[in-house]
Design a protein around this nucleic acid. Structure first.
Lengths: 260, 260
DNA sequence: GCACTATAGTGCGCAATGCGCATAAATGGG
DNA sequence: CCCATTTATGCGCATTGCGCACTATAGTGC
């Protein structure tokens, strides 16, 4: 296979092409893809039809896809791959009790997020609930990292060069208060690192303030951000700082203890 | 490679071993795995260390994993694979408005689930919220299919032989009302198919009733179940049937219209 | 109903790719 | 500092996957 074509990465010799192509096939089922024919998959993934077919057959055999009347679709089993990540990172149901306790204590819903630049991805959530129902874990809500408290906390945990690289591309503005300029963001991130938490006020949506704190594992590595957001009518930024952040820091410490 | 060892499936000739092994490597990062060494991954996935290493390098190169000081971990990018499934199935943010409208109308939280036997997996959720904040989509809460209204609805959409095969293994009991016996469940599922909805009362947890209706795509295929659950003190099973199910059926039709 | 097009499925020869041993380097514990 | 363990690399072999070309099948227009 051509590994030297212009624009193509030079792959290290320990690169398993078939695996990468298989992942491309999964990726071919993008948003709004629905059930795809073999040729559609092949062209979306940029593969020969025969190759795409073999990979699809593999997925079907493993239960990750199903085919019916010449159309293929992924199955919910694909979600287990995501759970491999979540479970491996320790961001699974063990976090839930602490999360719910915090939600009830604050009377706000709280969430746990990780960074997948340029987004933060929600991996768990708890509501200030009157009902003791197991919510278990919730995933996949994405929000722009640069305009959320969680994003700021997670960026603060990044090596400076990585953070700066991320900020090279222009970032969208959501409100007049959104910080989009690279240097200003770097300063904000540094301030957040010093403070140990982040409070943002109306940078994503007018009238909403959010607060976040880092959650670290036993080795001190930041693995997630714990966040809550609040309507300004209820709690403004100052109130978040005073009332909410201390409780969140305590919960974050609790969670750290659960993370091996 | 031995494809004939006892207990091993006979893989069709169109089976891409390296791809399957790569997926095994992702799966090796199970619950509580944390950061794994090469050898740990190899032994968990049942692979030669050299093979595991090549596959890990591939994952790292693609951004699905990272290695630091000889330990590997998956990255949040793995969650994009799950989103390929969700997006492809149409179970993405387009469903959210209808879901939220229903939640507000009912004053209960509602969820959208798919079947990954023996579980149902939550793929979206909305709360009866006072705040207009974008919850987007939530994934990954698993509940036992045989003890939930969603599960019953989704089983009703299965071919009878598949359903029966699923019920071959014994099912756990959660309350005295849990239906665990195969024939009884088949009957309940059939009844649910006739009725077009399911209402369960205390089969998963004492004092909680839940209702679910199927959501079909344009071709009539059931792709998800729309469900709500309620504390018995607030609404009992009869109330769910009378007040809630009609609104849910309407929302399900709305959602069907969004599904190509 | 028939020709025509497009897409799916199969066969097969080639060789590149991935395998897996065995060796070298590196780490870490005692 | 040495030994045990794990990681990293090398390399020859043949298996595995590739991708062309061919056939089968389904869907369309007339």
């Amino acid at each position: 296979m051509s590994t030297d074509a212009a624009g193509e990465e030079i792959r290290s010799r320990g690169f398993v092409t078939s695996f990468a192509r298989g992942l491309d096939v999964i990726g071919a089922f993008g948003p709004g893809a629905g059930r795809l024919t073999l040729s559609e998959v092949a062209s979306r993934a940029g593969l020969d039809r025969a190759v795409a077919r073999r990979l699809l057959m593999t997925l079907v055999e493993l239960g990750f896809a199903e085919s019916e009347s010449r159309r293929f679709a992924l199955t919910p089993q694909v979600l287990r791959l995501a759970q491999a990540y979540l479970g491996g990172a320790g961001l699974d149901r063990r976090m839930q009790p602490a999360l719910e306790a915090l939600a009830n204590r604050l009377g706000e819903s709280v969430s746990l997020s990780v960074l997948d630049w340029p987004d933060i991805v929600n991996v768990a959530r708890a509501e200030a609930a009157d009902r003791p129902f197991r919510h278990a874990l919730t995933v996949s809500a994405r929000m722009p990292a640069h305009a959320t408290a969680s994003g700021r906390v997670l960026m603060a945990a990044l090596p400076a060069d990585v953070a700066r690289a991320h900020l090279a591309a222009p970032l969208p503005r959501y409100t007049p208060r959104t910080v989009t300029e690279s240097d200003a963001l770097m300063r904000a991130v540094a301030a957040c690192r010093d403070a140990g938490f982040a409070v943002l006020d109306g940078e994503l949506e007018e009238g909403f303030a959010s607060a976040a704190v880092p959650v670290a594992d036993a080795t001190g590595r930041v693995v997630a951000a714990l966040a809550t957001s609040s309507h300004a009518g209820r709690r403004d930024a100052a109130a978040l700082r005073a009332e909410v952040v201390p409780a969140m820091l305590a919960t974050a410490r609790e969670m750290s203890a659960l993370l091996v």
